[in-house]
Design a protein around this nucleic acid. Structure first.
Lengths: 208, 208, 208, 208
DNA sequence: GATGAATGAGGCTTCATTCAT
DNA sequence: CATGAATGAAGCCTCATTCAT
């Protein structure tokens, strides 16, 4: 059950406190994703993290604060992965390659590092306004990253001239994001799967 | 605030009791969709339906029972609409037309009749196992409807020979379902929007 | 266990809800006075009022709201009693009589109607800033009532010319207020007791 | 921030442990006085004393134990001060002088050495029976000191023959004790203030 | 049919206390 | 001596549910 957040752990020997903190976040992300924010109790989280509910408060100020960090970790992870993927493309003007790489990166993060990002995507619309407000900014930045990519692709002739960027971006990400509802890593390897998705996105479902 | 469930109400003169029942279902669907199951209070539902929480129990046995009916109403509505759309196609062998009609029908139900279906789609994965179990059957039937359609299309040469049906169906429905997270009826008319989606699904995003 | 708040109940047949509300207030006032705000749990209050803790919330929004009403009821009762006592004095210029009447009224309210006023006086300084702030106004009005009385008395020659009003008022009320810490109605009748206090206040402790 | 308790520290060179102990007591007294026993957290106390909550337990067995010592320190300080004041009077039979000296001593301790005594006076009535029981003895001794003084004064003709000692003592101490609720050392010097109080106690409020 | 009022279970949170380091 | 970390009991509050009216 590797998790993006673990990656961000760079210090040599993580202290006990940090490990516990991370355990709480991992547990919370998993349960939030599965059951939603309100339906997940702190007792559940504590159980999953191997501790008692009260102990959570040594590491976090509130349930909200945990959710905040889960959401933030999730979106930043995808953002970073996609950005890197774009920048790694050798031919700077090959937007087909860039878009494919982005789709790959987004999907891969989504499906492999799962809980944090899934929680973010799945629950965002259901969150109390108060929490949601705190995360609009990062989400917008990620949307902007895609919009910029797609706009350039369009200007370079890769997309039809009458393509509207915003709905396109929403459609692409939507198609990708919903995969977390049903992707089964025991049936298809991650790479096979993402390849196939990239193909659908690019060429649609029909023969030729 | 017309709602699919109203449609299913066929008896000539609905009694007051039935109208109240329906008001509760409408209110519940709306709130469940917006906030999730656990986060929605029966007092919220009662408020939205213009009554007091206690009164709900004259019409329903429990919160679960309301959710059950909301879920059921939602899935049956899309199921019916898509089935009708397929059957309405004149040329029985034109699968491209049939698939397009199905996509249209699904999207239109999803976005216009909203709450019941949205609630179903958004919340299914978060529901307590117990409730979810009761709805697997209908959901499977709907999936089968699509699988049958897609299989025939593939056999008739509309789809590539190596296309795997299940992931394809999941991808299509996923792409469509996610639109409820962002479709804004003030920006695009429903028809314009669904046309565009049909096009993406069919041909992908690239020029040519 | 008569209580000021009961007096304010004027409607002919108090509804059940009102009676319960009052029972909660009475219980709360008693316990707040005895143990302090923080040390009194809502379970305690509920027990004393013959109900379950959760039920309190049908009548009040929060523990704070209860405290608010207790404090308010208390101070208004003394304020009203003292004001009436002053106005009831026949000779409008006899300040000795007026002051005596005020002391009497204050003490009598304090010791007979007890809990609400005692809670107010005893706990004010310990309350969370937030609650305290909401009650400064009424408290100031009561203080002003006394200050006005004492100022007029001084100007009419009843008090020494060099008397400073504020400390005097504080001293008088302080001396009176502390009596709730020890007054025992089984040892002295209320009237005997208040007479004696009036005398101390007026003439001090020494012979002649 | 000198404090009576410091005075009682007589050993030549206080060890670090003793200093920490004292810091905890000082912090606790201050906070208990301001907020009450229950509302004061050991974390609050630790903060105020510049340490962590867990560390307190090296010096005290429990929150109760701290409260115990605070209460005890408070009452003993006033007791000692008043006793000394009485004994310091030159003319052994001048009870007016003795009473005045006692009032002075009590007030001065109360207002200058503040926290321990204030905590004692303010909180005593709110304490759990269990704690309160442990302090009745010392409190009685202090009451007896006054009763003895007042009885002798009465027998020597300083007080009216019909004066009842207990209520008188309670009245005097009450009037004095309440001053901690409002005495403001920025408005009046301690000496001016105590003089004025002594005068009120002795002669009452009226001219002549 | 509907409501006012109550309840009990359970959720989030705080806090005195403990204990290994 | 002091701290970091954890715990369990308890507090405030919410909510599905019940029931008499």
């Amino acid at each position: 059950m590797s998790n993006i957040a673990d990656i961000s752990e760079v210090s040599d020997i993580p202290k006990k406190s940090d490990r516990t903190r991370q355990a709480i976040l991992n547990a919370a992300a998993k349960l939030f994703k599965e059951r939603g924010y309100t339906a997940t109790t702190l007792r559940d989280v504590a159980d999953e993290a191997g501790m008692k509910a009260g102990s959570i408060y040594y590491h976090f100020d509130s349930k909200d604060a945990i959710m905040d960090e889960v959401l933030d970790t999730g979106i930043r992870a995808v953002y970073g992965a996609v950005k890197e993927a774009i920048e790694a493309c050798e031919d700077d003007a090959n937007y087909r390659e860039k878009i494919n790489a982005s789709v790959h990166a987004h999907l891969k993060m989504l499906l492999s590092q799962g809980d944090f990002i899934s929680a973010n995507l799945r629950l965002y619309s259901q969150l109390p306004e108060e929490i949601r407000a705190r995360h609009q900014k990062v989400r917008h930045e990620y949307a902007d990253l895609w919009d910029q990519l797609l706009t350039e692709a369009k200007n370079s002739g890769y997309l039809r001239k009458d393509t509207e960027i915003t709905p396109l971006r929403q459609f692409i990400l939507g198609a990708l994001n919903w995969t977390i509802e049903w992707y089964d890593d025991e049936k298809y390897s991650l790479d096979t799967f993402t390849d196939r998705c990239v193909h659908f996105i690019a060429h649609g479902i029909y023969e030729k």
